[in-house]
Design a protein around this nucleic acid. Structure first.
Lengths: 172, 172
DNA sequence: TCAAACTTTCAATAAAAATTGAAAGAATCT
DNA sequence: AGATTCTTTCAATTTTTATTGAAAGTTTGA
């Protein structure tokens, strides 16, 4: 397989993966393109390689910068902007976890806290209310747990991450 | 807050969470509804409570059964089918992880393996090719790692999960 | 200050995804 | 077998989301 073909396949696969996880396909593709490009790319480069419009390229690069996954790179003497992706995969994973936590986990946890305040009412049996509260409580506990796990992993440096976690996992 | 209101809020929140993670909003809502319903519900119940059509209710219940998150429940003397959700949150998380692994992680890992077979070519410098191979290799390593972590957690029983992992996390 | 080079915005459009509802299919009863 | 009750399917439609492209905005150099 030639390099260009391999890059295309990776970009396509990364795009598909993204859309399965709620990230727009194009955003994931722009990310993939920057990941496998040796140097930084201009908006024109991105437009050409992915066959997308200027507006689309701009919006997605911007979104990736919001996620912290892409950086603007300015070259002396050049007016236009170039973009390059964070190449350290561990950092990439960390940034994605952080962002998704902030955007999606935090809101649902707020909702869980709210609905748990349900009060005994005349239109529902105590059993029903109790079953509900218990279910919500379980979800909260699990979410708290997942949250702490993620936070711990995020804070941990890569060496600790790999060594301790690998050790833990090779047990049994 | 009354029980009905609390249930609605939870269903709405769960739906939003689902759609942010690539699960159709309605599927997540049906799941939420069954999670917080004391007993099993019929298709009619689901249609009424979520205000959706019969076809929609049927398709989403079916999809949830494919995920292993919902079970059919037959009542003696009743012809129609009732549905109830798996209530153990740890099992829910496990089932979701399993399914997403199968559907989305496995395919991208296959692609990574393929594109890594890139060969030196006249149209690309060895440096470019090497940088690409290294990037893909890093992603593979990370994916393998995440994969093993997930597999380990899935196999582990809940007690081990909670106690060992909690201990690990309360360190530092 | 003007023009050139580039970036950003956003209303219109296109594409993708979800939903409906009615018809066809199954299962069960008389 | 025929009637009844419930489930499934799927083409048509609606809704949501992504994309375009041209106009407006910004920055820099002459």
């Amino acid at each position: 397989m030639q390099l260009d073909e391999a890059k295309s396949k990776f970009i396509e696969g990364w795009g598909t993966l993204g859309s399965a996880w709620g990230v727009s396909r194009t955003m994931a593709q722009v990310h993939a393109l920057l990941l496998v490009s040796a140097g930084a790319l201009s908006t024109e480069d991105i437009m050409e390689q992915l066959q997308i419009s200027r507006g689309n390229a701009n919006m997605n690069v911007r979104a990736l910068m919001d996620w912290g996954l892409v950086r603007k790179e300015l070259r002396p003497g050049e007016r236009r902007e170039f973009f390059s992706a964070e190449k350290d995969i561990h950092r990439v994973a960390t940034l994605i976890l952080q962002e998704r936590h902030k955007r999606e986990l935090a809101p649902i946890m707020r909702v869980l806290g709210e609905v748990r305040q349900v009060e005994p009412s005349p239109t529902a049996t105590p059993e029903e209310t109790q079953a509900f509260t218990q279910m919500i409580g379980n979800i909260q506990s699990f979410a708290d747990f997942a949250d702490r796990a993620a936070a711990t992993l995020i804070k941990a440096d890569e060496n600790w991450f790999v060594s301790t976690f690998m050790k833990l996992m090779s047990r049994r």
